[in-house]
């Protein structure tokens, strides 16, 4: 099995053994990702990072990954200073940039933009977020983190907590976790439940039926992993209701006292108020490690699709 030359656009495009290959390869990259050893695997290669909307964390993570592999990075962030501001379409931008680099990473506000870029480009394309649709490297690093922190994914009780209706991270992760045979608990405020298209995808493809609840206490008691994301105020009609929900679906030391001792808490970051700052100091807080794991995962992916690994 080889991922050489492949575009990474959607987690839906990846088979389980391909995901496993990426996760296993990431493991091999870790000491290099920490800077303990030096790699020249991608010396002379250039990664183009096209961020049509800013996402500092993701861009820095890709940059670190490419540089740790010995390669170089070029690109832009935001569209105000580029030719896009003059009205150039994505197709033309890609046709230009593919001539300058070896792999393209794209983040773009329109859904399906990365798929289009991959169709146009003769160089491999990695989707770093296309609107509300997909962000496959986030899903891969989430899987990797769980595997690292818990030693496995299969059979774990994993609670997804927050806005499950709109959050791209949660929708993709739910499917990927089902693929790896985790037991899902879905906890959300009323009205922000996981939509039926994702639930039926999970059931049809993996035969899994997640446990759904609006009650945070009932949902978290059996969890081995809690994956929490932000609930945006704009999702609610009035401000009072929004604040009430943000409060009710918050992780605090008090909430955690009801949970398993070995529970691990993950978050895609940046976090705002959904995790009590006191939790940051607790051993269950794994979200900063999670951010680091993005680097070896992206290193593995870059190395695999360029065929040097």
């Amino acid at each position: 099995m080889s991922l050489k030359g492949r575009d990474i656009i959607s987690i839906r495009d990846l088979k389980k053994d391909e995901v496993e290959l990426i996760l296993d390869s990431a493991e091999k990259m870790e000491s290099y990702a920490r800077g303990e050893k030096v790699l020249k695997l991608m010396e002379g290669k250039i990664l183009g990072t096209l961020f049509f909307e800013p996402s500092t964390r993701t861009r820095l993570s890709f940059t670190a990954a490419m540089q740790r592999l010995g390669g170089q990075v070029m690109g832009f962030s935001g569209t105000s200073v580029t030719s896009i501001a003059k009205g150039e379409n994505l197709t033309d931008t890609i046709r230009t940039v593919e001539r300058y680099c070896d792999i393209i990473v794209i983040r773009h506000p329109l859904e399906g933009s990365a798929r289009l870029a991959a169709e146009v480009s003769s160089k491999p394309v990695i989707n770093a977020g296309d609107g509300a649709n997909q962000h496959p490297t986030q899903t891969l690093l989430d899987l990797y983190t769980i595997k690292k922190v818990k030693g496995r994914i299969k059979g774990l009780n994993i609670a997804l907590l927050g806005d499950l209706k709109y959050a791209r991270t949660m929708r993709s992760l739910a499917c990927a976790l089902a693929m790896f045979d985790a037991d899902l608990t879905l906890i959300s405020p009323r009205g922000l439940e996981m939509t039926s298209d994702i639930l039926s995808e999970i059931e049809n493809n993996y035969g899994k039926k997640p446990f759904q609840t609006n009650d945070i206490d009932a949902g978290l008691r059996k969890a081995d992993v809690i994956y929490i994301c932000r609930i945006q105020k704009e999702r609610f009609e009035d401000k009072y209701e929004a604040e009430k929900m943000q409060k009710a679906f918050r992780i605090t030391p008090e909430v955690l006292s009801q949970c398993k001792d070995e529970v691990a808490i993950l978050h895609p970051l940046p976090k705002v108020t959904e995790i009590d700052p006191r939790v940051d100091e607790m051993k269950c807080a794994k979200y900063f490690d999670q951010t680091f794991y993005g680097v070896p995962v992206r290193m593995a992916l870059l190395a695999l699709i360029s065929g040097v690994m």
């Binding site: 379409n89 197709t91 329109l110 399906g112 289009l116 296309d130």
Partner: peptide
């Protein structure tokens, strides 16, 4: 918000 509805 689909790319097919833009100027591509």
């Amino acid at each position: 918000k689909c790319i097919t509805n833009s100027n591509e």
